[in-house]
């Protein structure tokens, strides 16, 4: 009997210790998520027309909303375009920079620079690159006798331009994680492999790459989340145009919320965004976890 009270006391004690964290989590994570879900079932109220319950009307509207499908498709391309390349590039740069190079610190720093710059600043730099006629790319192209190209004004190239910028911005960031992981690999592994006659490529494929898998999973999740999260550059470069050719889901949510002032529909889109991210995250953990060696 006394044992039992002690057990109960311990449990209560444990819960009490958890309480502050739980309250914060609930207040800043769970409550907003639930509130968003609830809001998506109402109309957007204004002072003169209060919000009404409409069930799934907002979702029905969404399914008919061409812009929604457009941004979803754009977002898929954006993800496909940025994720693999930025990860591959990050890994490549990390392996390269991890070698004993002259000026190693300098090279590392220069790869890392895009990461420390705010996205808005980066976008402003790249706006100057992409601007037709007077932009850097066009001026270099003109040096080779190539005509000017309206990179951001053309729906066929605009998303590609955004993707390139994003890769440039992200690869350096991911490189840092790979670099940290590489430095925690014992150097004897490479020495052992060298003695066994394994070339650089063989060693990379058979040892480095698999041992970097936990890092890759981490980076992959970040990259996927970023592909839905990183939209700052659109504000500077394209505002989602021309004709939504470069609009992404989160940017559209911003537009709906703060330019259209349609909180309800913005909530609806946010619910979709959360669902997409949750599904991707779960899928990644389930599928990749089996194939990853954690030390």
């Amino acid at each position: 009997m006394p044992d039992r009270t002690r057990l109960v006391g311990n449990a209560a004690y444990g819960w009490l210790l958890l309480l502050p964290a739980a309250v914060l989590l609930a207040a800043f994570t769970h409550y907003p998520a639930v509130a968003t879900l609830a809001q998506s079932l109402f109309t957007s109220g204004t002072a003169l027309r209060p919000a009404e319950f409409t069930g799934l009307d907002n979702y029905r509207f969404m399914l008919e909303d061409e812009v929604f499908w457009r941004v979803l498709e754009n977002n898929a391309w954006y993800a496909i375009g940025t994720i693999p390349i930025s990860i591959a590039l990050a890994m490549l740069m990390a392996v390269w920079v991890n070698r004993r190079l002259p000026l190693r610190a300098f090279v590392r720093m220069s790869y890392f620079t895009p990461t420390v710059l705010p996205m808005i600043a980066v976008a402003n730099i790249w706006l100057f690159f992409y601007t037709p006629e007077i932009g850097l790319i066009d001026q270099i192209a003109a040096g080779f006798g190539i005509g000017s190209h309206n990179w951001l004004g053309n729906p066929d190239t605009v998303l590609g331009c955004i993707i390139v910028l994003t890769i440039w911005k992200e690869a350096g960031f991911f490189m840092i994680f790979y670099l940290a992981a590489l430095q925690s690999l014992p150097p004897e592994l490479e020495e052992a492999a060298r003695l066994e006659g394994a070339g650089h490529w063989h060693f990379f494929r058979r040892v480095t790459f698999p041992l970097l898998m936990p890092t890759t999973l981490f980076v992959l999740i970040n990259a996927v989340i970023n592909s839905f999260k990183l939209v700052d550059q659109l504000f500077i470069l394209t505002k989602g145009g021309p004709d939504n050719a470069s609009a992404l889901l989160l940017y559209y949510i911003y537009e709906v919320a703060f330019s259209f002032f349609d909180q309800a529909y913005a909530s609806t889109l946010t619910v979709v965004l959360l669902a997409v991210l949750a599904i991707i995250a779960i899928g990644q953990f389930v599928i990749l976890d089996k194939r990853i060696h954690y030390r």
Partner: peptide, 15 residues
């Protein structure tokens, strides 16, 4: 054509 056994064994942990 030399083999080596390391103090830390240097086994590949994922294999």
């Amino acid at each position: 054509r030399v083999s080596m056994v390391f103090q830390s064994y240097a086994l590949f942990p994922h294999l």
